[in-house]
Amino acid sequence: MPRQIPNVVSIAGVDPSGGAGVFADIKTFSALGAYGCGVVAALTAQNTQAVTGVHVPPTDFLRLQIDTLFADVAIHAVKLGMLGSAEIVATVADRLAHFDAPFVVCDPVMVAKSGDHLLARSAVAMLIEALLPRSFMITPNLPEAGVLLEQRPPETVKEMYRAAERLREMLPLSSERWVLLKGGHLPGNEVVDLLFDGDRMIELPSPRIETKNTHGTGCTLSSAVAALLPQHAGGLRPVEAAVRDARDYLLRAIATSGALSVGKGHGPVHHFHRWWPGA
């Protein structure tokens, strides 16, 4: 019997350059064998160098997008990206709770690669209060972890351990929940991510790939995890396996990014490196 192809939705912002946000997420879903859906939570004027504007849809229309999609399509996983405002965060959290959405992977997008802020400060408290309890996994980088914990970002792997423990305490303690703390901001030739469920702390090291093409790496990793979680369900250590496969996909997408020529700033990763010739 052929396997079921999971339907995975990205609820995030739109990056017109295609390197991050909903467009990058759907590319990732497609590359990893999932059917991609998208709900637009924000519009940006953005390229590889800067974000020059942000527009968020009315919350009533955002709610209508989610309700209409979930009423018709069986959703097997959800990836959350840029949400932009406290009202958007609250609306998304409410609808995910209403539909009891599975495998919610929350990437708390706060700052673009260009340094532009993408999440209003008022939205951070709402994210912690309303959205983290609905999340199966959160995937902050170190600056985002610092914002969530109201402290400076971790500066060593040892400090990452403590941050991962504190982040896990912000999730429901009575059920399976995971933290994937990304260590790419630490210096050195090796990147160490931490995967933690409140019991097992798993170090995930990889060599650092020197390239300027890192636009959308966080979006791509979290959407890869969302695409793979339903496909690994029922297997041995399914969450760890999904994360390891997602990281492998991202590393290869970064390593082959030089095959693309997109923009003058931080270029995108190569989402279709497995399929396009020349990568």
Results as ranks from 00 to 15, higher is better:
68 T>S: 15
118 L>D: 07
86 A>D: 09
78 V>K: 07
129 E>W: 00
115 G>S: 07
61 F>Q: 14
106 C>D: 05
127 L>H: 10
98 H>S: 04
47 N>E: 13
128 I>D: 04
116 D>L: 03
124 V>R: 02
129 E>D: 08
90 A>V: 06
70 F>C: 03
68 T>M: 12
130 A>P: 00
81 G>F: 05
48 T>D: 10
60 D>H: 03
37 C>N: 09
91 T>A: 07
39 V>C: 15
55 H>A: 06
71 A>N: 13
90 A>M: 06
71 A>Q: 14
68 T>N: 13
95 R>S: 14
132 L>S: 09
128 I>E: 08
101 A>K: 00
82 M>G: 12
61 F>P: 01
77 A>N: 04
120 A>N: 11
62 L>N: 06
101 A>D: 00
53 G>M: 03
57 P>E: 08
46 Q>D: 03
62 L>V: 10
73 V>G: 10
54 V>D: 00
50 A>T: 12
106 C>Y: 08
53 G>N: 04
125 A>H: 09
67 D>N: 11
103 F>W: 13
37 C>F: 09
57 P>T: 09
131 L>H: 01
64 L>H: 04
79 K>M: 02
69 L>S: 01
112 A>I: 03
94 D>R: 15
103 F>Q: 13
45 A>F: 02
125 A>R: 14
102 P>E: 04
44 T>F: 08
42 A>T: 06
116 D>Q: 10
114 S>C: 06
101 A>C: 00
59 T>Y: 00
51 V>S: 03
103 F>R: 11
128 I>W: 00
69 L>P: 10
48 T>R: 03
71 A>C: 12
117 H>T: 11
87 E>R: 15
61 F>I: 15
107 D>G: 04
49 Q>H: 13
114 S>N: 13
77 A>V: 02
86 A>E: 11
92 V>N: 06
93 A>P: 13
